[in-house]
Computed example of a mutant assay.
Amino acid sequence: MSSFAPEILHPNAGAPWSLNRRLMLFSGRANPALAGQIGAHIGLAPSRVKLKTFSSGEVYCRYEESIRGADVFLIQPMCRNDETGLSANDALLELMVMIDAAVGASAHRVIAVTPWYGYSRQDKKSAPREPISARMVARMLESAGVDRVLAMDLHAGQIQGMFQVPFDHMTAMMVLAEHFNQLAADHTATGVRPEDYVVVAPDAGRVKLAKKFADLLRADLAILDKERPAQQVAEIGAVIGDVQGKVALIVDDIIDTAGTLRAAAETVMNAGAGRVWAAATHAVLSGNAYENLQAAPLEEIVVTDTIPLAPGAPEKIRVVSCAGILGDTIQRIYQCDSVSEVFGGHNQVF
């Protein structure tokens, strides 16, 4: 990555002086593999940072080289990582101390690249005396001193309005759609033609996302009538649209316990779909998710690498990388170029 030296005036001396800007990547322990792929995409390896957890459970951070004057991009989704022993809350706190250390070390800008934004489903009050935890996380990041935040496929668009610093929203929709377009292009091997697809929205809240996905595939759209009688419990009543004999693609932003996805797949199959696949950006996959996915009538579940998979994942899960999108966005932010051009202006999926 080439650097440039803009000529600016020192406020005291009144003479031009040179500021060497640098782009530096650092990875937390939530998803170092993704950080490595982003670095490979832009030709810049993540720099060294010492991160550890004390026996008391407290998190420690120290940058092992100077970051003074640099644009520091901290790659840390707020997710658990079984290999590094981090919980979702650990990942959030580790991001906080990384931001604080970077601010204290005189970084020029500190940008949090958190593709999976934690607590994003707690974006409003659904019952009395509940917190709006997504807003609380936004305040925490701003209080630590972050200058900018990047996230991918937020669960709710209003989270962007909870920040007073610039917020860039990215989407993996194009990457996921390209995967299914490739399957249709190779129809002799997959048995799927473009006209076979029907995109299924798992609930009314995902209709706009599903419609955009269907447009990318030139496919029809169906909607499931879903209700939640309790947290992490889904009941699906009916299919609105024609799925008879079709290849149904259930599209969502998150797969958590996979209870909704399993119920959706069973409902679509009972409505006459020939085959059922699924796509989602964030593979949270907590609780009995693997058991639900294994039991569901799904041929393939396509997810991105925003969250690392825990060991023992079913073979039907396929991971596609979003490192290219993240890398291109990071470069554009550093160079003060348009971020929306990465997505052709289609990164607002709400």
Rank of each mutant, 00 (worst) to 15 (best):
residue 3 S to L: 13
residue 9 L to T: 09
residue 10 H to R: 04
residue 13 A to L: 15
residue 16 P to N: 11
residue 29 R to S: 10
residue 30 A to D: 02
residue 30 A to T: 03
residue 34 L to Y: 00
residue 38 I to Q: 01
residue 40 A to H: 05
residue 42 I to K: 00
residue 42 I to H: 00
residue 45 A to W: 00
residue 49 V to F: 01
residue 52 K to F: 14
residue 55 S to T: 15
residue 56 S to P: 03
residue 58 E to I: 12
residue 58 E to G: 09
residue 58 E to H: 09
residue 60 Y to D: 03
residue 62 R to D: 01
residue 63 Y to F: 15
residue 70 A to N: 01
residue 74 L to N: 00
residue 78 M to E: 06
residue 81 N to L: 05
residue 83 E to P: 02
residue 97 V to F: 13
residue 98 M to C: 06
residue 98 M to I: 05
residue 104 G to K: 13
residue 106 S to T: 14
residue 106 S to Y: 07
residue 108 H to D: 08
residue 112 A to M: 01
residue 119 Y to L: 12
residue 120 S to H: 07
residue 122 Q to P: 06
residue 126 S to A: 14
residue 132 I to L: 12
residue 140 M to K: 05
residue 142 E to P: 03
residue 150 L to G: 00
residue 150 L to V: 14
residue 153 D to Y: 09
residue 184 A to L: 06
residue 185 A to H: 14
residue 190 T to M: 07
residue 191 G to P: 06
residue 197 Y to V: 08
residue 199 V to P: 01
residue 202 P to A: 15
residue 209 L to W: 10
residue 210 A to F: 04
residue 212 K to C: 10
residue 216 L to Q: 13
residue 222 A to H: 03
residue 223 I to H: 04
residue 223 I to C: 09
residue 228 R to P: 04
residue 229 P to Y: 09
residue 231 Q to F: 13
residue 242 D to E: 11
residue 242 D to M: 06
residue 244 Q to E: 14
residue 248 A to K: 02
residue 248 A to P: 04
residue 252 D to W: 07
residue 252 D to F: 10
residue 257 T to H: 03
residue 262 R to F: 04
residue 264 A to E: 07
residue 271 A to T: 10
residue 277 W to S: 06
residue 299 E to R: 08
residue 302 V to A: 06
residue 305 D to K: 01
residue 308 P to M: 09
residue 311 P to G: 08
residue 316 K to R: 14
residue 320 V to I: 14
residue 327 G to T: 02
residue 329 T to G: 07
residue 336 C to Q: 11
